[in-house]
């Protein structure tokens, strides 16, 4: 339960003022070290995709997903649990 794994989150977010800072702030506030962070444009230019890899426990990951769900500019959350083990897709909108 308390083991940490390398987990990757894919977020689809609106290209709006402060959206990116709110996402990053979610990790810094909780003391997470971001392993990898990639931001790339979506085909819809009002949106962009984020790929974020962090080390965390399952419980921490569940909390993070809920927090992102609450963020107004986050439209969609996809999770890749334990590196390549595609596990769950959560839709935020």
């Amino acid at each position: 339960m308390n083991n940490t794994y390398k987990n990757t989150l894919y977020l689809l977010i609106e290209n709006k003022f402060g959206a990116l800072e709110r996402v990053i702030g979610t990790f810094t506030l909780r003391g997470f070290k971001i392993e990898n962070f990639v931001c790339f444009p979506n085909t819809d230019t009002s949106l962009y995709d984020l790929k974020i890899t962090i080390n965390c426990t399952d419980q921490q990951l569940e909390k993070l997903v809920k927090i992102f769900y609450n963020q107004i500019h986050v439209l969609e959350i996809k999770l890749v649990l334990n590196e390549d083990n595609y596990h769950q897709v959560a839709l935020a909108s």
Binding site: I13, E14, Q71, I72, H73, L75, A92, S93
Partner: peptide, 8 residues
Amino acid sequence: TTELRGYS
């Protein structure tokens, strides 16, 4: 009214 895509 207002509508926000990512807010329900």
